[in-house]
Design a binder for these strands. Structure first.
Lengths: 336, 336
DNA sequence: TTGTATGCGTTATCAC
DNA sequence: GTGATAACGCATACAA
């Protein structure tokens, strides 16, 4: 294969390079027969238009970036699946970037692609509690951005999120209905919109259910399994809750491990509900009650919004704000 | 931000574009002070070198492609994590492509990137039983390719795989040791090297353990959960095995569901061991015995090999063939 | 319908 | 140490 370019191909065909070029563009004036001829020879010589040259010329890349905080999370990989699925149908490729929840990396990545690297960006953000004004410096007409799941509320962009408040409220209500009096809330970062919104639903449900809200029942965890094991062990021992709402799957898993080790019975001693996209929640011991977010659909929606923008579909001036519903699936871990 | 390019920046600084360009290259003759000045102004104007122009010029993209059969599989997403981790440290981006186990898509993708789109490819293949000679047409000096997990044996390329035969053998031996007489093997596609190798380990262990091998005990499943539920339900009823080796996680999960529905007790009636990268195998009911592959490391190794090649490290002429060890973790699902 | 010429934004080579 | 200029490979406006 090596170095066959449009000129060599043109020479081989005794044509000009423009004609050859035209053979690869769909809506160009070209004799169907010569087009055939070119395509055939191209196949033979294994020629493909150089991507970077075309992109430079056309100022587009047919590629979108997907920016996520982490990959070690089923939820995000499911979202990526959704994105991939719709991107593929429109001929787009996807570039994955992981920020490790570090806004510096997020910022640097956005900077690094801000000059034609990709046609658009799908992002779940990392710096909600920090200064993310860097985003205001990008021209969204040049580089459309759609936020999903974790969003910056103070920046006007299309978003795709789930109804976290309602889900949290409902799940807490369910725990109350099943007799819980001391319901704990497990969260990784209270400052994130996700953590905050879910916490609000939890608190309001407590209040409406006639239960006091107690700062001490809110466990601020980390992202590392081993740390969480420690935090939760202490937390459960000291606070002795009878119900738990885990704002992310990982915390529910840690809670399961701690309960097993400490001889805390689920659901008899402690009932658990968790935000989780685990496909086998059903098979856990005991099966885990979940608030299941439509992850794949989030990806699909976000991708569709972005691709619409890229193909010039007018959103009527305003930014779509999609809210998808999660589903509360009650299983053994929160049963009476 | 919009349209700021090197020329505008140069003008703003009253410099030539060559000088500006030099400020961004690390080892160029340039006055440190002017470099400072350029970089500062660049930041101010939010200038970034155009990726496509540089790539066109330099003939490299600092991007590698990761090609996998599917994303709906923890195993592959973990591998991607590993790749991402090392790629990031070397300043590479990753482009994800999913073949849906369709060699046509695999082929088309490789073709589509064969002209400078990426600097190299990491791939887990899809067309082992089909004609994959298309790969011989790519010049691996121009586009280095490293295969992982699912490989083409008849094409000379670096590979990273796990010791599937040994793992299978060991797991089967373990089942025999725990009293199983009728051990079934669950597989998705017998023709794949993965399925085949694992089956061989299983068969040899049976033989060495003095047990007959029986074609009927090999269940050829599909990739869809609902289909598998049906297949396995019938299979378990008809063949009545007392042990099962699942060549992929998905099949073990299906088996769990079927057992639950049919009142088959694990491990009393049926012992199960599965190839699985599930992090919470421990928490299943009952906890699942697994052959755990070092997925993240596979990704890291593959990426390292590729990046070494890209940076011109000589592999001594021969293609590295890495074999990583999986770990058999015995849990309740296969206990006596 | 096809060919010619120009520019997309860089970087490298060569002068200065 | 810096500036002019020629590629990189392609796609389009314009001429033929």
């Amino acid at each position: 294969m090596s170095k066959i370019d449009i000129i060599k191909l043109a020479k081989a065909l005794n044509l000009s390079k423009s004609t050859v070029s035209r053979a690869f563009r769909d809506n160009s004036d070209i004799n169907p027969t010569t087009k055939e001829r070119v395509l055939k020879m191209a196949k033979e010589l294994n020629y493909r238009p150089n991507h970077y040259a075309s992109n430079l010329r056309e100022q587009k890349s047919k590629t979108i970036a997907v920016v996520v905080p982490e990959l070690a999370n089923n939820y995000f990989t499911q979202i990526i699946q959704g994105v991939e699925r719709v991107a593929k149908t429109k001929g787009y490729h996807i570039l994955i970037f992981v920020t490790d929840d570090d806004i510096q990396k997020e910022k640097e990545f956005i900077r690094s692609i801000s000059n034609g690297r990709v046609d658009g960006v799908l992002m779940s953000v990392s710096g909600e509690s920090e200064d993310h004004s860097y985003l205001n410096r990008v021209d969204f007409d040049w580089l459309p951005v759609v936020l999903f799941d974790r969003v910056y509320d103070d920046i006007e962009l299309p978003t795709v999120v789930t109804d976290d408040y309602d889900s949290s409220y409902l799940a807490t209500q369910h725990l109350i209905a099943n007799g819980c009096k001391r319901i704990a809330y497990l969260v990784v970062n209270k400052e994130q919109s996700i953590g905050k919104t879910r916490m609000q639903g939890y608190m309001d449900a407590l209040h409406d259910g006639g239960l006091p809200t107690d700062e001490l029942l809110i466990a601020d965890c980390s992202n590392a399994y081993d740390e969480n094991a420690l935090i939760l062990k202490t937390f459960l021992a000291e606070q002795n809750p009878d119900g738990v709402l885990a704002s992310v799957e990982r915390l529910a898993v840690s809670a399961y491990y701690v309960c097993r080790d400490q001889g805390i019975r689920i659901p008899e001693d402690l009932k658990i509900v968790a935000f989780s996209s685990l496909e086998i929640a059903e098979l856990l011991n005991p099966s885990l009650s979940t608030i299941t977010q439509p992850a794949i659909q989030i990806g699909e929606h976000a991708a569709n919004i972005l691709l619409d923008k890229l193909s010039g579909v007018d959103s009527g001036g305003l930014q779509p704000q999609i809210v998808l519903s999660s589903e509360l699936v009650v299983r053994d871990s929160s049963r009476l």
